[in-house]
Structures are given as C-alpha cells and as structure tokens.
C-alpha cells in the first residue's frame, strides 16, 4: 500500500509542481574590460579641449562636439556601472573597501561632465576612471 501511495503522491507532485520558465536578463558572457570607460573618459577630455579652442562663431562644431562629449560621458557611466554591478564581487570589495564610493562618485562625475564644459571636471573624471581601471587590472591578476 505504501509504495502505491508514494507513486501516487509523486505523480501528483510532478503534475502540479511548477516548472521554471526563464525571463532571463543579461547573458552572463563573463567578458569585462575597463578600456571602454577609459576611452570614453579620454574622449570627454578631448572634446572639452577642442570646444575650448573653437572660434566663437563656429556654432556647428560646438554642437557636434558637445553632443559627442555628452554621449561619451553617458557611455563612460554605463561602462562603469556594468563593471560595478556585474564584474566586481564581495571579495574585491573587501580588498578595496572604498570601491563603492569611488564608482558612485565617478558616476556622478560622468553626469557633471554631461552637464558642463569644464576641463577640471573632465580631468578629474579621467583620473577617477584610471584609478578604477587600476583596481580592475589588480583583480584580474
């Protein structure tokens, strides 16, 4: 009698227990790099430099360079956030306890560089991204 009950109960459980359907998000490709954020930060610096050297009446170049500066500041933020949320793990944080704060402040710097044409902010961003890149490289060793 007991085996029959067991068989019946497993049949019922199998029939009515839910199967998992995935509503997947990211593909965990495992490919991460600090280079895109560094190139984006370098581009921001270069654009600010070029904008500041523009003649006052070259409005078209000003618009184009401002647009590129803003796009790369945004790209820089996105690439940093990918490293932050997908790559860095608790063991990295225990080795670099200021990592959260550093990335958070750098992301804010990206926004500042979107808003302003400011060489000090651009250089600060470049340096901060370089520091994060250094941490990234250290964790890869």
């Amino acid at each position: 009698m007991k085996p029959l009950i067991n068989t019946l109960s497993s049949l019922i459980i199998r029939r009515f227990s839910p199967e998992i359907a995935y509503a997947h998000c990211d593909i965990p490709c495992g490919i991460y790099s600090d280079h895109p954020s560094q190139i984006a930060a370098d581009t921001v610096v270069k654009m600010v430099e070029k904008i500041q050297a523009l003649p006052k009446d070259d409005i078209h170049s000003l618009i184009r360079m401002t647009m590129v500066k803003e796009q790369h500041a945004e790209l820089c933020k996105r690439e940093l956030l990918i490293l932050w949320t997908d790559y860095f793990k608790p063991e990295h944080l225990s080795k670099y306890p200021n990592l959260h704060d550093k990335i958070w402040k750098t992301a804010k710097l990206c926004s500042k560089n979107k808003q302003e044409i400011n060489m000090d902010a651009a250089r600060e961003l470049q340096e901060a991204v370089h520091e994060i890149g250094h941490i990234f490289a250290e964790t890869k060793k």
Binding site: R15, F16, S17, P18, E19, I20, A21, Y22, A23, H24, C25
Partner: peptide, 25 residues
C-alpha cells in the same frame, strides 16, 4: 498535454508585467 500548466517565472525580463518568482498558468 493537460490544458493548464503551472509555471514559475524566474528573472526580470518580463517586468513590469510579470514579477520574478510569480506563478502563472
């Protein structure tokens, strides 16, 4: 197959319509 099947959703790609962990028929 049976007309109705119980499914559990895992993941966030169907948000906001279906939340992670929700059971659906």
């Amino acid at each position: 197959s049976w007309p109705i099947k119980l499914i559990k959703i895992k993941g966030h790609s169907m948000q906001p319509t279906i939340q992670d962990g929700r059971l659906i028929l």
